[in-house]
Structures are given as structure tokens and as C-alpha cells.
Simulated assay, not measured.
Amino acid sequence: MLILLPFRQQPGKADTMMDTVDPDGVEQPAFVIGEHHETLDEPLGAFRRARLIHASAGVLIVRTETGRWVVPPGHALWIPAGVLHRLSATGPVRFCSLYAGADAVPLPFHSIAVVPDRLVAALLSAAADLPHDKPFDEPAARLVQVLLDRLPGLPVAPLGLNWPRDPRALRIADALSSNPADSAVLEDLAAAAGVTARTAARLFVKETGQTFGQWRQQLRLLAAVEHLGAGASVTQVAPEVGYSDVSSFIAVFRDAFGDTPARYFR
């Protein structure tokens, strides 16, 4: 079971509006493009505007050179202008992307996951129906401006994970991403990666900002979010991400996300 793939482009099939609309070729300072795919493997790329990606159905996986994010339905990811990223989904997914210049929205210059409220979700959907090939009329411009004004106040969601770049730590990260339920201790994982446990522990703190234990727990939680968001049950997901006891998994999930899995995806 592959949850979070290494950062590399892979071939795939997608039916997408991106085939006919180049975001960098649109003259509007801020606009929204809607997309629907049966599966998705978006090519690695970056845009001259920042991008807010909002999933309304299905689960998106977003990778950059330094991080991984899981974007379940009802959540969104902010990616600054110029940041290389790649989107993928193993099943049907519907989402829209807001593209906005850096001066249009006062959001951070780093990627963050946020939780849009119902109004923002509705505004994104309405803005996706606006034409991109001509200037907005006054009502359309007002709609987009209201959308932009509401973005800075959205709550942040802990749906990301910093990814190590040192080859030694990367080998450990990639091994665990292919099997989040792996219960091997760091000593064994480090030995398989050709590094001492002490060095591996130091590398994870230096490159991810988390201890190895914290990093692995977040990896497992994001794997759980991916599968729960796609409709899997808690009893199915818990053992797949390394928890033999469902109650323990629910407790860890609640501590991380502030709610039980059932309420989080309601």
C-alpha cells in the first residue's frame, strides 16, 4: 500500500480543464479554475501566482520538494508563487484552484493547509464559473474580492509533513511512506539505510523540525486522513497505519486534529 510517494513525476491519465487553460496565460489578477478527474497525476510545475487548492470531493495528495500534504474534502492547501508542486489522486477527485498574485492575498510565503468555511467554499465554486478570457464585470470582481478578503482568517489544519532531503534520512522516510504500519525501531530502520540511529535522529530533527517519533506519527495520521477521506472505516484504517487498538488510534487522532475521525469528516 503506497501512501506518500517519493517526489518524482509519474505518468498518469486525467481529464482536466488544465489541458485548455494555462493559469500563467490568464490576465486576471485573481481567478478560479475548477477540475474533475477520475484519477490524477498532475505534472510537476510551479506558477507565477500563488495557488489555493480546495478539494470538494475525493482526496488530493500534494508534494513539494520539502513537504507532503493530504487534502481531504472540505480542506484546502495554500502554495506560494514559484513553488514546485505536484498533485495526485488514486480515485475520483473534484477540486478548484484559486490563482492570485502575491499582492492580492496577505497569506504566508510558505505552504499551509486551511479549512475553508461554507461561504468560502461557495465563493470558490461560483468563481470557477466565471470566464477567464475577458475582464470581470463589476459583480464578478466583487465576488472574487470577497473571496480574497475571507482567506486570511481561515483556520490552519495540521495536514502537512516536512520531508527530509538528506539521502540517509530520505531512505528511511521513503521506506516508511510505503508502509506506515511498519513498527521497526529507528535502530533497525537506520541500519537498513546505512546510517547510525543517532545520526538519523539528528537528521530528522534538523531537516523536518520534528523528532523521528513525532514525524512517524504524523506520517501515520496523514495516511489515515487519506483513507478516511476516501471513505474507509476507522476499523479498516487503524491497523493499516500501525495501530492494533482502534481506541488508541482514535485518541491519537483526536489529540492531533481536535476531533474524532467520525466528526472530523462529517
Rank of each mutant, 00 (worst) to 15 (best):
A193C: 06
L221M: 07
Q218M: 05
R220W: 07
V252R: 15
T196Q: 03
Q214W: 00
A223L: 03
A230K: 05
D259A: 15
E207N: 09
A197R: 07
E226Q: 14
V237S: 07
Q236F: 02
V241K: 01
V246Y: 09
A232D: 12
G209F: 02
P261G: 08
I250C: 13
V234M: 02
A238I: 00
G258E: 10
A197M: 12
T208L: 00
E207H: 02
Q210A: 12
E240L: 15
V241W: 02
A230E: 11
T211H: 01
H227C: 06
Q214N: 06
L203M: 07
A251L: 12
Y243H: 07
E240Y: 11
R263A: 15
G242I: 05
A192W: 10
S247I: 12
Q214T: 10
E207D: 03
V246A: 03
R220F: 06
A200K: 03
E226H: 13
V252S: 15
V252L: 10
P261F: 01
A197W: 08
A200Q: 00
L221E: 06
G229S: 02
G209N: 03
F204T: 09
D259F: 02
D259Y: 06
G194M: 07
Y243A: 03
R263H: 13
E207K: 00
R220H: 10
A232H: 09
G213P: 01
V225P: 00
H227R: 14
F212H: 07
F257R: 08
L222S: 02
A223G: 08
F257W: 04
R254C: 08
L228P: 06
P239I: 01
E207S: 01
A238Q: 02
V234L: 08
P239S: 04
V246M: 11
G209S: 00
F212Q: 09
Y243F: 15
E226N: 13
E240Q: 15
G209E: 02
F249K: 05
F249N: 10
D259H: 12
G231A: 06
E240S: 15
I250D: 12
A193S: 12
D259K: 13
G229H: 09
F253P: 04
A232G: 02
P261L: 01
Q218C: 07
L228S: 06
Q217C: 09
V205D: 11
S247M: 11
S233W: 08
G231P: 02
G258D: 04
S248R: 14
V246L: 00
G242V: 01
R216D: 00
E240V: 13
Y243M: 09
F257L: 08
A201T: 14
F204Y: 04
A262N: 14
Y243S: 06
Y243I: 01
H227I: 01
D245V: 15
R220N: 09
V237G: 11
R198S: 14
T208S: 02
W215C: 07
K206F: 04
G242W: 03
P239T: 07
Q217H: 05
V246C: 10
